[in-house]
Design a protein around this nucleic acid. Structure first.
Length: 282
DNA sequence: GGACAGGTGCGGT
DNA sequence: ACCGCACCTGTC
């Protein structure tokens, strides 16, 4: 245990699996310390989570923040039961991923993180974000904070290329400069379709990244990010009639307000049991 | 060495 | 509005 990190709360583990929650593609700033211990960074905050005897214990300076971060007020037993009742495949996916929580993360951090995630794999995304934080983030008692919009906007694009972001370098700077004079509270107050349309005007944000920002950074459960894994899921377990660009809408119509959690269950299910064809990302 | 995974921007239609 | 290609890095 990191020294002088206070105990904050514990939570029954049946519907809160730290490993499954952190490793299903919604967050990139975490480390596995051992089989039952994980470290998590969000903004300038830090927590360690220890799983033992069917319970998760959180150690952090800001228990309120991480309680909300892990969505612990929501009833995932009810959600998983409702989703599992939809079909045999959703039953299997919900049973497999019932420990997943949809994280409530920082909006700005999600925008930059998922721009980096585009056309990229989790291992490399984690590495690039870590380098960006080390280079531009403020010091905290437990490591670097996620960089400010100002710090990213003031950096030359070449810096991000040098840190491994490749051709996404200019997307980061362009979006940071746009956000300098942007009202994110207005974005947060929009309905989901309007906010999605607005996010699509950000450089480096397409349909998939916009849906990830809405789901993980704006607490919008009624979106369904479609990446290559979900395209495989669609063709393997659902239909064949839709073009790739229509798959997200198909799943949103099917799952409604639960679409985002259904996506996480299916993503995790596919990665856990069906990781034959695409990159085996670790 | 060469193919390919991984989403978005852009130019052409 | 839709389609096809370029883009960067890592892995097989």
């Amino acid at each position: 245990m990191t020294t002088d990190l206070p105990f904050a709360f514990d939570y029954d583990g049946e519907y809160f699996d730290v490993c499954d929650t952190l490793e299903c593609g919604q967050i990139f700033r975490y480390q596995k310390l051992s089989d039952d211990r994980y470290a998590v960074h969000s903004r300038d905050k830090y927590a360690e989570l220890v799983t033992a005897d069917g319970k998760v214990k959180a150690y952090t300076d800001d228990g309120d923040y991480f309680w909300k971060f892990f969505d612990l007020d929501a009833d995932y037993a009810a959600k998983a039961a409702r989703i599992g009742a939809l079909s045999p495949i959703m039953r299997a996916a919900a049973d497999c991923g019932k420990g997943i929580r949809i994280l409530n993360q920082d909006l700005t951090e999600m925008i930059f993180s998922f721009i980096i995630s585009a056309n990229n794999n989790i291992k490399r995304i984690k590495l690039i974000i870590e380098r960006v934080c080390n280079r531009l983030g403020e010091d905290t008692p437990y490591g670097k904070a996620f960089p400010s919009t100002e710090a990213i906007a003031a950096s030359p694009a070449e810096l991000f290329a040098h840190l491994g972001a490749g051709y996404r370098d200019k997307y980061l700077v362009a979006t940071a400069q746009k956000l300098l004079h942007y009202d994110l509270d207005a974005l947060l107050s929009m309905d989901t379709p309007s906010a999605r349309k607005e996010l699509l005007t950000f450089m480096g944000v397409g349909p998939k990244v916009a849906d990830c920002i809405l789901l993980f950074g704006m607490s919008r459960g009624d979106v369904f990010p479609v990446d290559t894994w979900l395209k495989k899921v669609y063709h393997a377990y659902f239909e064949h009639g839709h073009k790739d660009s229509e798959i997200s809408t198909f799943f949103c119509n099917l799952f409604g307000a639960d679409a985002g959690l259904c996506q996480q269950y299916l993503f995790y299910f596919q990665r856990k049991y069906r990781q034959n064809a695409p990159n085996t990302v670790q």
